[in-house]
């Protein structure tokens, strides 16, 4: 059985890699299998975890038993879940012409909840903490920083400030403001360069992982 599994995996991996040569039926087959399996997998996971695991078990909980399997007490049902389930069913109203507007109510609930939560999270983590983290002494604590650290500090503070200036839309980019914005876009471009490098590294890692599988787990050529 193990042999079959490793051969299927190798067959599909090679199929996907064959796209580098050109689009071909082997690639299409591998891709279709991948798409189909992942869609099916997600359906199963969401069904068992959400509909069964959360809702069904929550509303109709099994009895509590001790280690020997003897009855201890009835489970406590959580009827609040029914509200969520009803809202969930209302989402399906989208499919029916005429009553499609009903689906807006659960949407309003989702949008309301998530925006409330996100507002807090983003505001504190991505704005306040970041502003606080940027307030650093340029020359280190008690003048103690090395030249490299001073340059690093200036880049952090200057880069953040210039980046903010670039994304400030209420003022024309002219004069000193425009010059700062220019610095800002340079900093942003350098960041993109770094990000691009990291992406290359990430994609290479994926390729290395597959090569390790093909030459190691499959063909056994790697010691």
């Amino acid at each position: 059985m193990e042999h079959v599994a490793v051969w299927i995996a190798a067959f599909l991996t090679l199929g996907i890699i064959s796209f580098l040569y050109k689009d071909n039926p082997w690639y299409k087959l591998s891709e279709a299998i991948f798409v189909g399996i992942s869609a099916g997998y997600w359906f199963v996971v969401l069904f068992w975890d959400n509909i069964y695991g959360k809702f069904w078990v929550g509303v109709f909980p099994p009895d509590v038993v001790d280690e020997a399997g003897n009855f201890v007490s009835h489970g406590v049902p959580d009827y609040a879940l029914i509200v969520g389930a009803v809202l969930g069913v209302l989402m399906l109203a989208r499919l029916l012409p005429g009553v499609g507007w009903i689906s807006r109510w659960p949407l309003a609930f989702i949008v309301g909840c998530t925006s409330g939560l996100y507002l807090m999270n983003y505001f504190s983590s991505n704005i306040m903490r970041q502003v606080q983290g940027t307030i650093i002494p340029l020359f280190g604590i008690g003048y103690g920083a090395s030249v490299y650290e001073i340059i690093g500090n200036i880049v952090i503070v200057g880069g953040t400030f210039a980046g903010l200036v670039y994304f400030f839309f209420s003022k024309e980019h002219r004069g000193a403001f425009g010059a700062t914005a220019k610095v800002g876009i340079w900093v942003i471009m350098i960041t993109f360069g770094a990000s691009f490098g990291y992406t290359v590294m990430s994609r290479m890692s994926l390729l290395i992982g597959r090569i390790d599988f093909l030459f190691g787990d499959w063909l056994g050529l790697i010691k």
Partner: peptide
């Protein structure tokens, strides 16, 4: 922007 500018000046000079 203002807080970063004021804060960095304050902490640098203060330090």
């Amino acid at each position: 922007m203002i807080v970063i500018l004021v804060g960095v000046i304050a902490v640098t000079i203060g330090n």
